[in-house]
């Protein structure tokens, strides 16, 4: 189970990265193609959908890496039992909201299918297809939050937590590996 969940977050993160490369490809093709008379019909729509898919599919991975930010000033004043309680409170709020959000994103996608909603550009694409990335990204984030919650309730240290860098070298190292937050 542990391995499965960790892979789920990681591979959806990779999928987000793949969408980033796809955005790059579409835009380059649109821009360079124009010089040679090629046009990607509805290329702008495709890039927009890749953007949404990327933004949401990468969320769980980003969260687990501790890069979804928060204001930690108050929480960091506490240690031990009190700190644990605060973390549980924050996780509860975030999990509840994300579940609510996910439910409605899934409903919206389902409605798009039910209503036969179509993209409004040059190509007639059913909107539920690109919306899958959005809904499933949120779903994976919700799973990650529940997973984290269970973990913290069992008394483990939150995986999203990182100590602030202690030296400039460590700082540079952190920046290199992604975010330092």
């Amino acid at each position: 189970m542990r391995v499965f969940l960790d892979r789920l977050y990681l591979f959806s993160g990779y999928a987000a990265g793949a969408f980033l490369i796809l955005i790059f490809g579409i835009m380059m093709f649109m821009s360079v193609g124009r010089q040679f008379g090629f046009n990607i019909p509805a290329g702008d729509d495709f890039a927009s959908w890749c953007m949404a898919a990327m933004a949401f599919l990468g969320l769980a991975h980003t969260f687990k890496k501790g890069e979804i930010i928060r204001v930690g000033l108050v929480v960091e004043q506490f240690t031990g039992r009190k700190r644990w309680a605060l973390e549980v409170l924050a996780l509860t709020i975030a999990t509840a909201f994300t579940l609510y959000f996910t439910w409605h994103a899934v409903t919206m996608t389902y409605d798009s299918w039910r209503f036969n909603d179509m993209a409004q550009g040059v190509l007639s694409v059913p909107l539920w297809i690109p919306q899958i990335g959005y809904a499933s990204g949120l779903l994976i984030l919700a799973i990650a939050l529940v997973d984290e919650m269970v973990d913290v309730l069992r008394g483990n240290k939150p995986t999203y937590e990182k100590e602030p860098p202690s030296s400039p070298d460590e700082f540079v190292e952190r920046v290199a590996s992604g975010g330092a937050g």
Binding site: R34, G37, N39, P41, D44, V122, S124
Partner: peptide
């Protein structure tokens, strides 16, 4: 270099032999 933003304008561009361009 013809801006095509919906089905109709894309078709017109195609029929007159213009180069359709996607610009928001």
């Amino acid at each position: 270099k013809w801006r095509a933003y919906n089905v109709g304008t894309a078709r017109i561009g195609e029929l007159v032999g213009a180069q359709s361009v996607t610009v928001q």
